[in-house]
């Protein structure tokens, strides 16, 4: 991280001491980086939907309603009872999409936290201690990055047996490599700075230096990467569920809803619209938020 970065962080801590100034600053950031505002609002709506799912949903997401199926056995399209139609076995599409938000966020956030934890730990250790430790960790990271990620996760989930927990564990445990690389790079830059060197000269232990001097400086890129990672992982969960090896029905997931739509789109095209739109909303929201945060926190990019 360069010096301008460090200055920005200092400025923000100073401003935070006075409420008014910090509020002004928030407005200024949001005005300068509208992507943060738009992405943030999109993510916020998702959180609200996930929390209040039982209040928003009009039907039970896993009940098969006989009224959702027509006389010839085909799912009914959007009508007054099922506003976005019913799926191939008579469940309410709208309510399933609402409950699917919970699954997506759960997998997206927990998987990212796992990757974050592994990635930051390995990145800091690798960058800080250098030498053979760095050699070993970086070779492992290279190996992980060589695997086509989706195929790798598919293979692991297949081995673990699909369930919500196994899906986010598989995604999280395999997805740390990029984070490790980025954190290591940041640590290498910070490590040589004067104040770290002087802390060392004053006899501070490695532990203290890592937690007090190094970690605060990698927070910004980690937040950016973490935000983008949540979006990617939501997409990955949907892809796994779409392929039939992620979240299993009757639990509602946007991915397994789209799989249902894939088999019946000729007679029920509404099955692919709402879940796909929800998925796009989620990935777009996290991508916008992540990109906006990057523009704000890392002025060297994109100017």
């Amino acid at each position: 991280m360069d010096t301008s970065q460090i200055q920005t962080t200092n400025v923000s801590t100073v401003n935070n001491r006075t409420g008014l100034k910090s509020r002004n600053k928030v407005f200024k950031v949001l005005r300068t980086y509208p992507m943060i505002l738009v992405g943030g609002l999109m993510v916020f709506t998702l959180l609200l939907i996930a929390i209040f799912a039982p209040l928003i949903a009009t039907h039970n997401p896993i009940t098969q309603y006989p009224t959702g199926i027509s006389d010839i056995g085909a799912p009914k399209g959007p009508n007054s009872e099922f506003i976005f139609g019913a799926d191939s076995i008579g469940r309410d599409v709208f309510s399933r999409v609402i409950y699917g938000t919970r699954v997506s966020l759960e997998v997206g956030i927990f998987a990212s936290l796992i990757s974050l934890f592994i990635g930051v730990t390995l990145g800091v250790v690798s960058g800080y201690f250098g030498k053979w430790v760095d050699m070993v960790i970086m070779r492992i990271t290279d190996t992980m990055l060589a695997f086509p990620f989706l195929l790798f996760v598919i293979a692991l989930v297949a081995v673990l047996k699909p369930s919500i927990t196994n899906v986010f564990i598989a995604i999280g445990v395999l997805g740390w490599a990029m984070m490790t690389r980025i954190v290591r790079g940041e640590v290498l830059k910070v490590k040589e700075l004067e104040y770290v060197q002087s802390a060392k000269a004053l006899g501070a232990s490695n532990f203290v230096i890592i937690f007090k001097e190094i970690l605060p400086n990698v927070v910004a890129p980690v937040i950016v990467m973490g935000t983008l990672l949540v979006g990617q992982n939501i997409m990955l969960e949907a892809a796994l569920s779409f392929l039939g090896i992620g979240i299993q029905p009757p639990t509602a997931s946007w991915g397994n809803m789209l799989q249902d739509g894939m088999n019946t789109y000729q007679i029920a095209p509404w099955l692919i619209y709402l879940p796909g739109f929800a998925l796009l909303w989620a990935t777009l929201g996290f991508n916008l938020l992540g990109d906006g945060l990057r523009d704000w926190l890392d002025p060297t990019v994109g100017n």
């Binding site: 892809a239 789209l258 692919i272 796909g276 990935t283």
Partner: peptide, 10 residues
């Protein structure tokens, strides 16, 4: 942000 499989189905 587009899901590949959704785009394909579309």
């Amino acid at each position: 942000s587009l899901p590949t499989f959704w785009l394909g189905m579309w």
